[in-house]
Structures are given as structure tokens and as C-alpha cells.
Write a protein that binds this DNA or RNA. Structure first.
Lengths: 352, 352
DNA sequence: ATGAAAGCGCTAACAG
DNA sequence: CTGTTAGCGCTTTCAT
């Protein structure tokens, strides 16, 4: 890395040493250099030494483009993620690590408002990625299956109807169960669920809530408010709650963002959390950990999900029969400061 | 896009149509297909038609690897970003857009705890990116210059000492000035600054605070508390403030995260914000907009920064002399709910 | 306007 | 263990 490489202002190109250059300096053939660089068997220790030395001297680094093209297999894993989603950061971290161990490279493609899954995947496929890992994709099952028809695809964090893609996700129902159990154990009975709208994840969580309530003997108290995935949705839901004649003692939101909206509106309306009402979110997003918020929420194991996703993709590529297309991990409740035992409501001054 | 491509489970490889296939189907040479696909001059409208048709029929998509290798210029812009940094999401969005307009492709490399700038940049360079755009890099100036010596490099969001790299950043001093002015205009005089530690950005902001205070005739009230870039640092600083005999009426934090820590600790100590003390952050991070936090902070124009960064890189590659290596944009204060006119302190009940 | 041919820098199969 | 030889799929002269 000591080589002083300069870029040529004339044509904007950088002249970098090639295998050939290294071979020349080491006085061997290109093939031999290739072998040494790839750390493949078939070169004497002595040659190895000399080649490595020459490479270092020139500051040689293999050209990924050429390598990718020449190699029969690209050994490339394409990953799409949403820059806005804090959870994806954790997943990416794990993916890079696991992929490296498995001998794969990772090429990521960011989703932005003007760059959806289709674009991102197309880009990835143009690089001839061998498999796709899609973090919390927002396209239809139909399209996901289309992706899966082209290369092995692993969807992380969301359910996909039957077939063609592997799925690594968290048991949403179980998460809701834990949340309901937690609240019920604290003495709450009027536990309202503000749902996430019309998507599948929302349906799963809604159903989980229903089942858990019934199982706790609170079937009669089931109350679901239409919500959404955003803070605004939470605000709107809180407003609706406040308009009703009686407030529940606990609210279980579809996700953290929605819960933030609830917290906000309750704060403005002079309802103390958790003294007057307990609030639980879902996702354990980074913000939920922020102490001014300190939200009790349901968390997922990012590292494990990442590990499994890569492992699936690789297994599939290796032709191994994968037993279950879908792996459902168990989430775990993280109790923070927005829940407490049910108690008499008391007046409390506004905060803002 | 209608082609039904299947991946071969035998060897994990996908067989995709090549230029050759398209050429055969269209009954022309590969060269001609290449011309048509690239929309380059040198083919009759008729041929164009036929080739395009054939390509569509086969679901042909050019192989990026081959393309990159064959082209003498990669027309690739390498971007490093930090997945944890919400602001980078906005920047990326702008970068993708501007780059496309300029006829460049973008390849991003994510920074994670175990994957620092060095790794990321090396990966990017291995793809033979022509230029680098580094979002809020955390390595030394020394190393940044090293990058700049290899390819044109644009650093976004931080100052770099003299030379070799272009810089697009926000005027930190001006941001601090606006914050101080805002607080002073609200009647605050005891405005404490909790700084960000030993990095350059922190020094800039600290200095901006000093200058602004003096200019406002508050030179005697200058008070700087050692802080840091994290929430924890904010918590610690708040603790130190609370230990002192008198609390200031306003605190200006190094950044939003630090401000969050302050908010948290104040909340726990029964100090109302903004009634008892006003708090200002810096960055306009996504969380600062969350209504339970609703932090008054200093914002930056992501789109413009992105546009300028790409423009710089491209200009540099085109060999255009760029007048100023450093562009400093003006930030703007965003007044939210954590600041209010100075007034008598009053007791207020705990929130939690 | 079209086609033939020569690489881009590397890997991999095959001889020696 | 080492070197020779084909490509990978595309772009790009350079003839025709």
C-alpha cells in the first residue's frame, strides 16, 4: 500500500498495476501470480514469497471487474436495504461479516424515495449477483417471486406467500403475545391495539394481539384502532382515543414510529405515560432507546437474522436442499419506561 | 422484462442472454447491438428498432462487469456512507439522482463498526471507481489526502486541511451563530455550550459559539462544558451542570445526539424544557423532528450538498479546473419546541 | 451504416 | 510446480 498512485488529470483515469506487471517484476507467469493472489494451491513457497513481494512493491490490487467477469461465478451477494431504516444498519453489519466468512462478496444497493426495489434489484442483477437478500422489501409478493425466479432470493423481515423465496422473519404474533402478557401481568385489561394498516405485517400483528387477548381471557376487551406505520398515524389514533369517553389503560402500537405519535399526542393532551397510560411499541428501533422516549418495545435479533439470511442464500447456491424456506425467529420484549402497573389515573401537569 | 429467467440449481449460475444472443436474433453484428444498446450514434433507425425488439424479447440486460471492464472509463462514482447516520440517507438520495443526470453510476460501500473507511474505499477502488465521495468520513486528514492522491475525492460534511480533496460542508460557525442569536434574542444570556470533544468539527462549532457570544456582548458569559458526540456525553454534561450551584438558562449542544442526552437528564432531574432551560441541537437529525423530542436545531441542505459533491467529482474527472476546493454552505436554524423566552424558573413535577 | 477483430484484466483448464 | 492458452461479455478502433 506504499505505492504512490496518482490519477491522471488528462483523461480522468488511474493507471493501476495489473497481474501482468506483477508477473513481470516477479519474473513469473500471470497464471502463477493469479494463483498466489487468490491463495490457491499450486505454487511453491518461494514463488509465493517473490510474487507477494512484487505485488506489494507495486501496490497491486486485483481488478474486481475483471475478476468478476473471468470467474465462472461472481460470488456476489446483492443486498437491498432502506437507508431510512435503522434496523437495516444492524442487519447489514451482520451480512457483511457472515458473507465474508462464507467467501462471498457483498454489493449493496440503497433504496431511496426515487429508487425502489425494482431499480435496485435490476442494478444488482446487472452485476450478476448470484443471490439476493432483500431487507424489509415493500413490493408485492408477486414481484418478490419474480425476483426469486431469477436468482435465489432471501427476504428478511417480512412474510411472503408461498414459494420461490426464502424468508427470515420474526414471529410477529409471538411478539404481540409477549407485549400483551407483559401488560396483562401489570394488571392492564383495557389494552387497545393501534394497528398498522392494510399490509401483511400489520395483519399478523393484529391477529397476534387478538389471540393473545383471548388467551388471557381478555377477549371481550379486544379493541383495535386503525393506525398506520408512521408517527402521524399514531398521532391520529391518539386523537381518536382522546375523543372517546374513556381512555384505555394501555396501548399496544403496530410499531415504534406509531408509538412515538401516541406518546406525542398523549404528552400534549396532558396524559402522563406511563402513569396514566402504558404504551408499547414494536421493533426496538434506535429511537426507542433514546432516553427521552425510552419506549417499551419488542426487539428482534438482527445478527441472527443476518446470519441466517446469508446462510440460506449460500446454501441455496451450493445446491443444498434447504429444509424450510421460512425461518421464524422469536422476538423478545424489551421493557423500558413507558409501561407500569395499572393504577388510578391522576392529574399531571403538561410537560411542554 | 418478460423473459422467464431461471437460475440453475446445479451450479448456482444464471444463464443470461448476451450481446451475441441478441445479435443473432436480430441478425446483425455484436458491435451494432452494442451501439444500439448504448444509444450511441451509428445505426439506422430500422436496425435500432430490430435490435431493441430482439433485446426485449430475450430480456437482455448488459453485463455491468463486462461493460465496466471493456469501457476504458468505468464512469463509476464510489460513495462511502455510514448506515447509522440518518443524514446520509438524504445525501445518498441526492447523489444517485445527480450522478445519473451526469451519466455516472454510483456504487456505494457501507461503513459498519467492523468496516471502516479504509476497507470501504479499497473495495470501491477495486471496482475502479473514478472518483470517491465520502460522507462524513471519520479518518484522519492524512488518510483522506491519501485517498485524494489516488482518485479525485470529495469529502462531504467535514473540514479537511488543505489540499488534494474537495470539500462540501456546512458553515458550522454560522450555524452556531444563528443558534446563539436565536437564544440571545429570546433574552438568554447564560448560554452554555456543551462541545463535541477533540475533533475538528467540534473545534469549529466551539469557536463559532465563542465568536457569536462575544459579538452579542456575552463574551463574559462564555462557558464551555466538555461533551461528546453521543447521547451519553450529553447525559454526563447535564449531570455536571446539575452539580453546579446555578443552572444556565440555555444550553447549546454540539449535536442532536448530545442534546438528546441533555434532554433526558434534565427530564429525570425535574428540570422542564424549555420552561426552565432552553436546549438547542445541531444537525436536524430525523429524531430531532420526532414530536416527543421536538428539538430546536440547526439544519443543512442535503440535496444541495449532494448535488455539489457529484458536480465536483464529475468536473474534476472532466479535467475542468475547479475554482474552489471547498464549498461552504449556509445552514439554517430550525426552531422547534425546546427553546422559549427566558423566564423565571418555576418548579415543575417530574415527568416519569 | 455495418462488421471484423483486438483487447479490458483476470481465471481456469490443460500441458509440460 | 509452472507456463500456455482460451475465454468471460462488452466496447472500440478500423476497415468495408
Amino acid at each position: 500500500m506504499s505505492a504512490a498512485l496518482w490519477w491522471d488529470m488528462e483523461d480522468g483515469r488511474v493507471k493501476r498495476p495489473t497481474l501482468e506487471d506483477v508477473a513481470a517484476l516477479a519474473g513469473v507467469s500471470r497464471a502463477l501470480v493469479s494463483i498466489v493472489i487468490r491463495d490457491a494451491p499450486g505454487a511453491s513457497a518461494q514463488t509465493r514469497q517473490r510474487v507477494l513481494q512484487a505485488a506489494a512493491e507495486l501496490g497491486y490490487r486485483p481488478d474486481t471487474r475483471a475478476r468478476l467477469l473471468a470467474r465462472n461465478r461472481s460470488r456476489l451477494l446483492g443486498v437491498t436495504f432502506n437507508v431510512r431504516h435503522a434496523f437495516h444498519a444492524d442487519l447489514l453489519e451482520g451480512i457483511y461479516g457472515t458473507a465474508e466468512l462464507a467467501g462471498y462478496e457483498v454489493v449493496v444497493s440503497a433504496l431511496t424515495p426515487s429508487r425502489d426495489e425494482r431499480n435496485a434489484v435490476e442494478t444488482l442483477l446487472d452485476y450478476r449477483c448470484e443471490a439476493l437478500i432483500l431487507l424489509g422489501p415493500e413490493v408485492t409478493d408477486q414481484r418478490l417471486r419474480e425476483f426469486g425466479r431469477r436468482v435465489p432470493a432471501v427476504v428478511v423481515g417480512r412474510r411472503v406467500r408461498e414459494g420461490l423465496v426464502d424468508v427470515i422473519r420474526t414471529a410477529d404474533g409471538e411478539g404481540m403475545r409477549q407485549a400483551v402478557e407483559h401488560l396483562a401481568a401489570l394488571g392492564h385489561e383495557e389494552i387497545v391495539h393501534v394497528d398498522g394498516g392494510r399490509n401483511r405485517k400489520s395483519a399478523d400483528r393484529r391477529q397476534g394481539y387478538r389471540v393473545a387477548m383471548r388467551r388471557r381471557g381478555l377477549g371481550g376487551r379486544i379493541r383495535i384502532l386503525p393506525g398506520g406505520e408512521t408517527e402521524e398515524a399514531g398521532v391520529a389514533a391518539a386523537r381518536r382515543l382522546l375523543e372517546g369517553e374513556s381512555l384505555p389503560t394501555a396501548v399496544l402500537a403496530y410499531n415504534d414510529d406509531c408509538a412515538f405519535g401516541l406518546l406525542d399526542m398523549f404528552g400534549k393532551a396532558d396524559i402522563a405515560v406511563p402513569a396514566d397510560i402504558s404504551v408499547v411499541g414494536f421493533d426496538d428501533s434506535r429511537m426507542s432507546r433514546l432516553s427521552p422516549i425510552n419506549l417499551t418495545t419488542v426487539g428482534q435479533d438482527a445478527r441472527e437474522m443476518a446470519r441466517l439470511a446469508v446462510q440460506r442464500a449460500v446454501a441455496r447456491l451450493a445446491g443444498h436442499e434447504v429444509a424450510d424456506r421460512e425461518v421464524v425467529l422469536t422476538p423478545h420484549l424489551i421493557v423500558r419506561g413507558t409501561t407500569q402497573p395499572r393504577r388510578r389515573r391522576r392529574a399531571s401537569p403538561p410537560r411542554q
